[in-house]
Simulated assay, not measured.
Amino acid sequence: MKTAFRDVKDDIRRRIVQGVWGAGDLLPSEVALAEEFQCARATVNRAMRELAEEGLVERKRKAGTRVLASPVRQARFHIPIVRNEIESGGAIYRYALVSREVIPTPDWLRARLGLEQGGQVLHLTCMHYADSSPYQFEDRWINLAALPQAAEADFTTVGPNEWLIAEVPYSDAEISFSAMTAEAEVAQHLGCGVGDPLFLAERSTWFEERAITHVRLAFHRGYRMTTRY
């Protein structure tokens, strides 16, 4: 009988509540738990992610998962597919690939994602429109060591985010939000002035310790993000 992630999650939660694993304790690795529960590592990973979202454990890449001293409620950010976001607002979605090139991994990106020297990335810039109005400028890098098939993928009709979601899951993500001032290229594509303030979202994702992608998303003036927790 196949073990469901909910069974794994419930059992781990029970052990934490009963004190089998106390505050600050390091939980067994995903590989060890997968062997114990006789399930796939991805099943354990999903259970751990949900326990982290509920504030029972804290997960750190390369450092493992520990029981939190004081359970907290953590925000759960929904990462939308921009097509769905635009169409749910009643607008017509349009996508355009602006540029595409395979390049040696820049030093700043290698340091950020923990990549080895000598690798290559696929660098894409794309535009997303709502009713023909500029909505989002996407500046994305895909690690070809992890996803070599991306080098041959057709991104002229489907954006890289939709392609990545269909191609590979992610186990870890880092997301940051900030204000930015529009540089010349971004201003040209978003139809704003150079130096105008814009909303910026940056996201890096990994799957089982392998870096997948890093993206910078600049939104049109007046964009507002809403999330639930």
Rank of each mutant, 00 (worst) to 15 (best):
G222L: 07
E35F: 09
V8H: 00
T125K: 10
V186W: 01
S99R: 00
R94Y: 08
R76F: 00
L217M: 10
R59V: 11
V98F: 02
T125N: 05
L51M: 06
R14N: 04
A47R: 09
D139E: 15
R140D: 02
P80K: 02
C192S: 04
L164F: 05
A179S: 12
G64E: 14
K2Y: 02
A91E: 07
Y135S: 07
I12W: 00
G159R: 03
T226K: 10
F77N: 00
D196I: 10
F177Y: 05
R46Q: 12
A201M: 08
P134K: 05
W21C: 13
S204G: 14
Y223K: 14
L115H: 12
V57H: 11
L109S: 10
A184L: 08
I212H: 02
Q136H: 11
R66H: 13
P197H: 13
F37W: 00
R83I: 00
D10P: 03
G64A: 12
P160D: 00
V82H: 04
G119Q: 11
W163N: 00
A146S: 15
P106E: 08
P106K: 08
R224F: 13
H123M: 07
T181K: 15
L27T: 06
D25L: 15
M225V: 11
E85K: 06
L124I: 06
V215Q: 01
R76I: 04
V98W: 01
R66N: 12
D196M: 09
Y223P: 14
G19T: 05
Y129N: 13
T3F: 02
W21N: 12
K2T: 12
V57K: 06
T157K: 04
I16A: 05
R49E: 14
P148R: 08
P148F: 08
S204K: 06
K9S: 07
E202P: 02
K9E: 12
G64L: 12
F199P: 13
M127L: 11
A150K: 07
G193A: 14
E58Y: 10
P160C: 03
M180I: 15
C126M: 09
P71S: 15
V215P: 00
L198M: 13
G90M: 05
L124H: 05
R46S: 10
